[in-house]
Computed example of a mutant assay.
Amino acid sequence: MTISAVPMFDTSQVQSASAHSVAEWSAIAGARFVPLRLLALDPFSGSIRWRYIEQTCISEISAGAHRVLRTDELISPDDPRHFKVSLQLEGTGIVAQDGRETLMRPGDIAIYDTSRPYTLEFTDEMRCIVMAFPQDMFDVPASLIRRITAVRLPGDDGVGALLSPFLRDLGENLGEWTGVTGMRILRATLDLLTALVYAQLAEPHDHWGESGRAEMRAFRLFIDAHLGDPHLSATTVAKAHFISVRYLQYLFSEEGMTVSDYIRSRRLEHCGIDLSDPAQADLSVQQIAQHWGFRDASHFSKVFKRHFGSSPRQFRASHLGAHA
């Protein structure tokens, strides 16, 4: 067994280790992030090259047939909570978690969560790229990730066709990703992964469409109830529902708008109703605008005219008569 003397979390250079027996492989790969049980038959050989960029580890792994088990008894509350993203480069593999399993062929991508049991099985010689990163680095709620663990994410279509070669280059050129360049490449990779996850969640599996519509109804009700708050924004909506701003914006973008567009549109609709209501004729335009969250009179006048085609005063006059 050859193991680099460089400390595991050294970010300054590429590290490597190789094994020539099952016992050596277990010593090398069995506890790199969290405790794992590895099963294989001798003769066995395997090798790992890895590099840390910040708290994220990118590894290129080559090995013979083997199984990797992350079982309940191996999981401790003190274990680091990581997501792992695997890109199959050679051979095939089976990833199983959360009651699902998927067959991975070269180019395919899968996500799994180290805080819950999972199984990896490789029936022949294999090579893959694995990126492991703390869950709090990823701008996707863990509850959503749970819906697509052990789901095949195709690397030859859509966002996957962008991410797959990106991950391949990342793993095969570990020595190049240093300093600021490495951090930028990492961030770009996570952004592509985020896009891939949301694209997958938008697919009509696991009744996702129904649950997504229910979430949108909840967001709209919350926004309508807080339109008068001048500080209402995508951030406050996301925080109130314990989700990320990115995810909230994604759901609204699926309906062709931003959160800000929706808030502004609903405020303008209410202003239009009030300005055309004779019972509120004693209220000034500014009072009505402020009631619905518009603090700047000039800004309100501009967005109102753009929305309705006339100024607030002209709109009110046309609906209430010349003496309004």
Score class of each variant (00 low, 15 high):
Thr2Ser: 12
Ala5Thr: 13
Gln15Glu: 12
Ala17Glu: 02
Ala17Met: 01
His20Ile: 07
Ala23Gly: 13
Glu24His: 03
Gly30Pro: 01
Phe33Asp: 15
Val34Gln: 01
Val34Met: 02
Arg37Asn: 14
Arg37Ile: 07
Arg37Met: 10
Leu41Glu: 14
Pro43Gly: 01
Phe44Trp: 00
Ile48Thr: 07
Arg51Leu: 10
Ile53Asp: 03
Glu54Thr: 09
Thr56Val: 11
Ser59Gly: 03
Glu60Tyr: 02
Arg67Gly: 10
Leu69Cys: 04
Asp72Gln: 14
Glu73Gly: 06
Ile75Asn: 00
Asp78Asn: 09
Arg81Asn: 06
Arg81Cys: 06
Val85Glu: 01
Leu89Pro: 00
Leu89Ser: 02
Glu90Ala: 15
Gly91His: 03
Gly91Tyr: 02
Ile94Pro: 00
Val95Ser: 03
Asp98Pro: 00
Gly99Tyr: 02
Ile111Val: 13
Arg116Phe: 00
Pro117Phe: 00
Tyr118Leu: 07
Tyr118Ile: 03
Phe122Leu: 11
Phe122Thr: 07
Thr123His: 10
Met126Gly: 13
Arg127Glu: 14
Gln135Ala: 05
Asp136Tyr: 01
Pro141Lys: 00
Ser143Leu: 13
Arg146Asn: 08
Ala150Phe: 00
Val151Phe: 04
Arg152Asp: 00
Gly155Asp: 06
Asp157Val: 06
Gly158Asp: 03
Ala161Leu: 05
Ser164Met: 12
Asp169Ala: 11
Gly175Val: 09
Thr178Met: 11
Gly182Leu: 02
Ile185Ser: 07
Leu193Asn: 07
Thr194Lys: 06
Thr194Ser: 07
Leu196Met: 09
Ala199Leu: 08
Pro204His: 06
His205Asp: 14
Trp208Arg: 13
Ser211Ile: 11
Gly212Met: 11
Glu215Phe: 13
Ala218Gln: 13
Arg220Pro: 00
Leu221Val: 06
Leu221Tyr: 05
Ile223Val: 14
Asp224Asn: 15
Ala225Leu: 05
Gly228Tyr: 00
Ala234Met: 12
Thr235Asp: 15
Val237Gln: 06
Ala238Thr: 05
Ala240Trp: 04
Ile243Cys: 09
Val245Ala: 09
Tyr247His: 15
Gln249Ser: 12
Tyr250Gln: 09
Tyr250Leu: 04
Tyr250Phe: 15
Ser253Gln: 14
Gly256Thr: 04
Gly256Trp: 01
Thr258Glu: 05
Thr258Gly: 13
Ile263Cys: 10
Arg264His: 10
Arg264Thr: 15
Arg267Gln: 11
Leu268Gly: 11
Leu268Thr: 09
Leu268Phe: 04
Glu269Ile: 12
His270Thr: 11
Gly272Tyr: 03
Asp274Gly: 06
Leu275Gln: 02
Gln280Lys: 15
Gln280Ser: 09
Ala281Met: 06
Leu283Met: 05
Leu283Arg: 09
Val285Tyr: 04
Arg295Ala: 14
Asp296Met: 02
Phe304Tyr: 11
Lys305Asp: 10
Phe308Gln: 14
Phe308Glu: 13
Ser310Arg: 13
Ser311Phe: 07
Pro312Phe: 10
Gln314Lys: 14
Arg316Cys: 01
Ala317Cys: 15
His319Met: 13
His319Trp: 10
Leu320Ile: 07
